[in-house]
Amino acid sequence: MKVIRGTVYVVKDDIDTDQIIPAEFLNLVPTIPEEYAKLGSYALCGLPASYPPFVRPGALKAEYPIIIAGRNFGCGSSREHAPVCLGAAGVKAVVAESYARIFFRNAIATGELYPFETPLRLCDIFKTGDEMEIHVEDSKIIHLPTGKSFSLKDLGAVAPVVEAGGIFPYARKAGIIK
């Protein structure tokens, strides 16, 4: 069974792609390995100063494999740098109330992370640093200190694509492309 476990980083509504990866870093090309890693170090650095740093200064990766967000996560630009920088920073899943369409699609196409949707506004319940566990197949997230479990929306056809590593490996496995 696939389990994602670790500390969560919590953000609120309308986190747009300029906050996820500011435009000045779009000169980095995600398919070049060193630049992919570098993108991770800038993940979420465009958030207002009221948020704690997502990636520590000098580090390439974040300590948070799970992001919990409010509505409309990833709105704005179509830059694939957004899900890519989160994946490069070590994020395995985002749990948001809703997503902007292109971010959601890019997260799946790249296979960088699982874009879970939550019917409950978890970003008001949990705090950055809480220890949590996502059970991917069971579509639930568990708050480890209390053992409380919350159901997430079933990912449906999305899960196997992310599991395979994105649309290309998935399409090959499924025989859609050679």
């Binding site: 179509s78 292109i102 196409a109 994105g166």
Partner: peptide
């Protein structure tokens, strides 16, 4: 590969933005 590709609907086309992976496909 740009979210404002939706501009081109102004001429009666279907136009939308996508990421690099979809564009590579």
């Amino acid at each position: 590969t740009d979210s404002h590709t939706c501009t081109h609907g102004a001429l009666g086309a279907f136009a939308t933005g996508i990421g690099n992976t979809d564009a590579g496909f």
